[in-house]
Design a protein around this nucleic acid. Structure first.
Lengths: 231, 231
DNA sequence: GGACAATGGTGATCTATATCATCATATTTT
DNA sequence: AAAATATGATGATATAGATCACCATTGTCC
């Protein structure tokens, strides 16, 4: 089904990803034969809450936003996933329907894998299973800290968390550009657009950060850290 | 090392647990040889945040409370684990030190397994790995909903959640006894002792529940559900 | 058996942040 | 080019729930 060109591309992706790199050749071939590479534009929906789970999505390039939608029409952003990670793994294994939605941030390339193939590999390749277990574990722990923050930190602490999240987890730089508008950053901080704006602009006025539009530079990392720690 | 009596007990436990039951005999023997059965009293600490991870804890009898401690000295209860489940799996695989603490609720029996043995089984037994993946996935999803509730539901909704949690997840009955004092129930609802007491006593006055001391009976399940749903 | 801690409870404030209203730009659509 | 929408921003107001300060019981420990 796949053109040889795409098969080649997929193989290259597997070769350079930390998780698939050391797979036996046959396992990689299986994956290549049962995957396809898909490009998404900004804000495209990868999958939607309550729809049937179907495929494993491995992010090759770009960012993916994972969010929960609820009756109140005020979504919560659970996390942002970057390249070399999976989207929706947990739901895939635990539930027949997605428990949250996912959409692309910017242009994104996703390697879509057949779930059956993925499952067989997990069963036969213990090393791989253990890696997946580690990934899921980390996700759990991350949300634990989010919950803890949401309960005990007040806004400045949570906004500081968002700054650290982008700079340390996503862009690995203390100067970066928010890939999202304010109201979505607010979803990530568990607050409203207005409150987020007020708080981050206070950071700006206090010279803790530089901020023009979506461009940020963390000026006083120590203060941001203190704000995050003390909540 | 283990007395034959204990070895026998452990084997029986493995035989009747859904997760180990279908293991090959040799795998079960390995586990028996590398596990020990330990009794804990009410409020004993099983492991403490920031200490080195060491063993896999499988809950045989009783309940275990998982909580995060933080600087503000106000813990967050992440979940309550009941029999036939593991405590601390996620940390074990992701971090060298525990990311949260665990203590027993009431008298508890724990099967403590050697992590190395557990790991080897995961690598060699694909079925088992997949089961563990499913467990971890469910945990992730549960905390996602907790986070969502914490952000969007107000207190009555979260107190309703606590009622539903105990009745449906823990005791499988709409009449039960809280195994914890009010201030710990508050930790589970992400609020303070005072606010929790006020809210649950309002439920009582509104005849949604019956409540004497720690004994609860959910009278209007539909109203509790509505409170939980609408937040 | 007295002391001390733990637990359940209530009232009076206080405050962080949600909510509502509005506006200026910038961006996209027609 | 005009209209419509998205985005960033700011002020005024409302309020849920935290905080503080108590108190009465009950349980536990020398």
């Amino acid at each position: 089904m796949d053109s040889p060109v795409q098969a080649n591309d997929i193989m290259k992706i597997l070769e350079r990803s930390w998780i698939f790199r050391d797979f036996p050749v046959q396992d990689k071939k299986d994956l290549v034969a049962n995957s396809s590479l898909v490009r998404y534009d900004n804000r495209d929906v990868l999958f939607k809450q309550k729809t049937r789970t179907s495929h494993v999505m491995f992010i090759v390039k770009g960012l993916v936003k994972i969010y929960k939608e609820n009756v109140s029409n005020r979504p919560v952003m659970l996390k942002i996933i970057s390249g070399d990670h999976f989207a929706g793994l947990d739901t895939l294994f635990a539930e027949p329907v997605y428990q949250y939605s996912a959409s692309s941030i910017g242009e994104t390339t996703i390697l879509i894998m057949d779930f059956g193939t993925f499952n067989n590999l997990l069963m036969s390749n213990g090393r791989f299973a253990l890696d997946v277990i580690r990934l899921l574990s980390k996700e759990s722990l991350y949300i634990f800290t989010r919950l803890n923050s949401q309960i005990h930190k007040q806004l400045p602490g949570r906004v500081a968390d968002v700054l650290l999240y982008f700079s340390e987890e996503i862009y690995h730089s203390y100067e970066f550009e928010f890939p999202l508008p304010r109201h979505e950053l607010a979803e990530l901080a568990g607050t409203t657009k207005e409150s987020f704006i007020r708080t981050i602009n206070e950071f700006k006025h206090d010279k803790i950060i530089q901020l023009e539009g979506r461009r940020v530079k963390i000026v006083s990392l120590d203060i941001v850290r203190i704000l995050s720690d003390l909540g």
